[in-house]
Each structure stands twice: as C-alpha cells, then as structure tokens.
Simulated assay, not measured.
Amino acid sequence: MERYRVVRLEEQMYGCEELPEGAEVCCDVTVEAADGTRKTLSYPDAELTRQGIDEGDTVLWDGTALRKA
C-alpha cells in the first residue's frame, strides 16, 4: 500500500446530465506522496464520508481502495 496525503477533494461535476440510475456520486481526490508525486483518483463520496477522509488526512492506496491511515 502506498501512503499519501489528501491535498484536495472536489465533487465531480455532472453538468446538466444526470447520473445513470444506481450510479454513485464520486469525488476527485488529489493525493500527494512523500516525494511530491501527485495523482487524482475518482472515489465514491459516500465512502469518503464513511471513513471521515478529508483534506490534509493521510491515506493508504492499494490501487483500488483508499483507507484512512
């Protein structure tokens, strides 16, 4: 698992299009590694809220799932 710091959380904009039925609302999560490398992940808003993940938090990323460290 890689360790990152959450730099920015931003709800994805869907414009005038509605989400398909059953689709989850997602956020763009920008994370930064210790070496300064950044990446932006698309992640379900409900899961971020459930774990209490917010900007400034340290998270672990295994390639598929985020977990608050």
Rank of each mutant, 00 (worst) to 15 (best):
D35R: 13
R50D: 09
R50L: 12
Y4L: 11
G63E: 00
T64S: 10
V6G: 00
V7K: 11
R50F: 06
C16A: 09
T30M: 05
D45V: 09
R67A: 15
V25Q: 12
E18F: 03
Q51M: 08
P20S: 10
D57C: 07
R5G: 04
A34W: 10
L19S: 08
A23Q: 12
E11H: 01
K68A: 06
K68G: 08
T40P: 01
C27M: 13
W61E: 05
V7W: 00
L41W: 01
R3P: 10
V6P: 01
E18A: 09
E17P: 03
R50S: 08
V29T: 02
G15V: 00
E24C: 09
Y14E: 11
Q12S: 12
Q12G: 15
T40R: 05
A23N: 09
Y43F: 14
R50P: 03
Y4D: 00
T64P: 03
R67M: 12
R50V: 04
L19R: 15
Y14A: 11
L66G: 02
E10G: 11
E24N: 09
D28G: 02
E2H: 12
A69H: 06
V59N: 02
C26S: 07
D35W: 10
A33I: 00
A33Q: 12
V31H: 05
D54W: 07
A23H: 14
G22K: 04
V7D: 07
G22T: 04
T49K: 15
R5Q: 13
Q12R: 14
V31L: 12
R5K: 13
R3H: 10
R3T: 12
G36Q: 08
D54V: 13
D45M: 06
D57K: 01
Q51C: 05
E11M: 02
G52D: 09
T49Y: 11
C27L: 05
T49R: 15
P20I: 07
Y43A: 01
Q51V: 03
L66W: 03
E2M: 13
M1P: 15
K68R: 14
D45H: 12
G56K: 02
E55V: 08
D57S: 09
T49A: 11
V59R: 00
L9R: 01
D54R: 07
R8G: 03
V59M: 02
D45R: 10
C26Q: 08
E11A: 00
R38W: 10
T64L: 11
D35Y: 11
A33V: 07
E24F: 06
L66A: 06
V31K: 03
I53F: 00
G56T: 03
L66K: 03
Y14F: 15
D35M: 05
V6L: 01
R50G: 04
Q51F: 04
G22R: 02
Y14R: 13
V6E: 01
L9W: 05
D62F: 03
T58L: 15
E47C: 08
E21A: 14
E47A: 05
A23D: 12
G56W: 01
